[in-house]
Nucleic acid binder design. Structure first.
Length: 568
RNA sequence: GAGCCCAUAGUUCAACGGAUAGAAUAAGUCCCUUCUAAGGAUUAGAUGACAGUUCGAUUCUGUCUGGGCUCACCA
């Protein structure tokens, strides 16, 4: 990468003036300040007790000369600005058009195995837009880590036991007739899930209002845990509906998993591990339950096995971790993409795991606490039915796209997924999203369809050019670019840095922002300059820019889990 | 009561401690006999409050205000 080479040269220059210090480079927001800039002279001013401008001048004087850097300049308070030789960017752009993307390896890069655990919906519940944000982030992170050289395992922990399910099953068992159930069986998966959602809500009401009904529900919960009793058949059947429904959604949003872990698999083993932890003194008996006392570690106290003898979510998590960390060989990192209300839960289970096996778990488990999708009316809750279903949103977007642009269904589907996923991914994962219907299916501005449109535009131009990419632009007196050409040309090589940063910070939004910036620059260039009807050299250069833009957008969108279309 | 996250144009979001705080959207004006107008140009509009650290603070620290989440048998 250019950046690395620059940093190296910068370090050499610093050494010559007797300084060994960490240096950083930035991209100046204003292109008048070059391609890269550093403020190292300003930082050194104090320790060296010199004028920063003077220090900057000395660094400049000692900066090794090579073909890469065209110009070094010292500016105002003490910035040093670097202009990279355009030939470098031209060569880079050409490599891009040949599909070469040399992305630097991350510390979790080559030969490192990362598990990314995401999606984790609960069975018997609708898959809502919160899950969609989760899955968009998870899928993107998988691809980003693969891009920086990691070996990634995709896993998904699906909740198929617990009170919420007992509530749903209770309603079906006691409040629903066989005839009604037979009607539901004939319907689509989505309708089946809607039915389960209603059953759950009704069960919830019963649970809250009536002690006797509550008891019945708890009893059903026990049957599911013990895997026996007369509700098992209906439990299995409805669970299957859920799994099939999830599979359908995963496929629709281009996600797959190496391993689906059903929560019910971990109850038994969870209890065993908890008992082992008790023997080791890690967990303690308290009021009939088995708990972890967090105070000595500055953590919360949490229950691992409740007083009825059932493992809680915590108890099961230990068994899950055991499995995750053994099924795929040694893991170097395990990233749990889960909302922040589970922070306390993860801190505690991670600590218990570490106490059980420090070598295996210490500093390897990571909770990526991405934030909620919030509705204008407040938090989504399947309890009250105040949810926006993921597929409903996608369908709606698709419908609008077909209506507005008269494209075929297959294209509309891809655009719809792009619109919805992008609306989640363009945001920082740590900030809440206020869901807005129009915004989420936005087709203009900073949106997925805008990027697709730009991509299609590049492809359309290339098609009309018969895809002939000449080579006469190279090092052939093309130093005087038009402003828009120059600015566009210099964006491509940043792609590597952006992907690297996205991996480092678990931040797909960096890629989204980068692509948007690229597309804007291309569109401005496109608007101002003729590509096909210009003299041969210029035409070749512009075709190169066009092809590189298309390629980077395509690769970038792939990293966001978004497909491209050739026509729209 | 304790802890964690967040606060930027009307709205939704950007900005490794850097140079003139960027976009989108909504509002106004302009550009299709021109490679896809799902595009481009242009006019307005913002760092919650008060201190501190720094050559420099949206960014770091403290206090306050306002949101969200969590703190023992739900998942």
């Amino acid at each position: 990468m250019v950046k690395d080479k620059l940093l190296e040269n910068l370090k050499t220059a610093l050494k010559k003036i007797g300084v060994e210090e960490e240096v950083s480079l930035e991209h100046p927001a204003n292109s008048n300040f070059g391609d890269y800039a550093t403020s190292i002279a300003l930082k050194l001013a104090k320790t060296l007790k010199k004028n920063p401008l003077q220090i900057a001048q000395e660094i400049k004087k000692n900066f090794p000369k090579d073909d890469l850097v065209e110009k070094v300049e010292v500016m105002k308070p003490g910035f040093i600005n670097f202009w990279i030789n355009s030939n470098y960017f031209l060569d880079f752009a050409r490599e891009v058009t040949e599909g070469k993307f040399d992305i630097p390896e991350f510390y979790l890069g080559k030969n490192k195995k990362i598990m990314i655990e995401f999606a984790h919906p609960n069975t018997h519940k609708l898959f809502h837009i919160g899950h969609l944000r989760n899955i968009s982030i998870g899928e993107s992170l998988v691809r980003v880590f693969e891009a920086v050289g990691s070996k990634v395992v995709r896993s998904n922990y699906q909740g198929d036991v617990g009170l919420h399910i007992a509530k749903c099953i209770w309603f079906i068992k006691y409040k629903s007739s066989e005839k009604e159930l037979n009607e539901i069986r004939k319907k689509s998966l989505q309708e089946k899930m809607t039915y389960l959602g209603k059953a759950y809500s009704a069960g919830q009401v019963a649970y809250d209002k009536n002690e006797k009904l509550k008891k019945e529900i708890i009893e059903i919960n026990g049957m599911i845990y013990k895997q026996r009793g007369d509700v098992l058949a209906i439990y299995e059947e409805t669970r299957k509906w859920s799994f099939d429904y999830f599979d359908e959604i995963y496929k629709r949003v281009y996600t797959k998993f190496d391993r689906l872990y059903p929560e019910s698999e971990f109850a038994q083993r969870g209890i065993e591990i908890c008992k082992l932890a008790e023997k080791k003194g890690i967990l303690k008996r308290s009021e009939g339950a088995l708990v972890f006392v967090g105070k000595p570690y500055g953590l919360d106290t949490r229950v691992f096995i409740n007083s009825l003898g059932y493992p809680t979510y915590e108890g099961k998590e230990l068994a899950l971790a055991e499995k995750e960390f053994s099924e795929f060989g040694e893991l170097d990192k395990c990233i749990h993409v889960v909302t922040p209300e589970q922070t306390s839960f993860f801190k505690v289970t991670f600590k218990v795991e570490e106490l059980l096996n420090e070598k295996k778990f210490k500093d390897i488990q990571y909770h990526l606490a991405y934030e909620w999708v919030k509705l204008k009316q407040g938090k989504m809750s399947s309890r009250t039915g105040n949810v926006i279903e993921a597929e409903w949103l996608i369908d709606k977007a698709k419908e609008i796209i077909i209506q507005k642009f008269k494209c075929d269904g297959k294209t509309a589907e891809i655009i719809a997924i792009a619109a919805v996923k992008y609306s989640f991914l363009k945001n920082n994962v740590f900030s809440q999203i206020s869901f807005d219907f129009d915004e989420s299916i936005s087709l203009e501005g900073n949106s997925g369809p805008y990027l697709l449109y730009t991509y299609v535009r590049t492809q359309s131009v290339l098609k009309k050019s018969d895809n002939h990419l000449g080579t006469t632009w190279i090092k052939d007196g093309m130093a005087n670019f038009e402003k828009e050409e120059n600015e566009l040309l210099r964006v491509f090589s940043n792609f590597q840095e952006v992907v690297y940063e996205a991996a480092k910070n678990f931040a797909p939004n960096l890629i989204a922002n980068y692509l948007y910036d690229l597309a804007q620059k291309y569109n401005l260039f496109y608007q101002k300059h003729k590509i096909l009807e210009s003299d041969k050299k210029t035409r070749n250069l512009r075709l190169l820019l066009t092809k590189a833009t298309g390629q980077v957008i395509k690769n970038g969108l792939y990293l966001l889990g978004i497909k491209t279309v050739e026509k729209m």
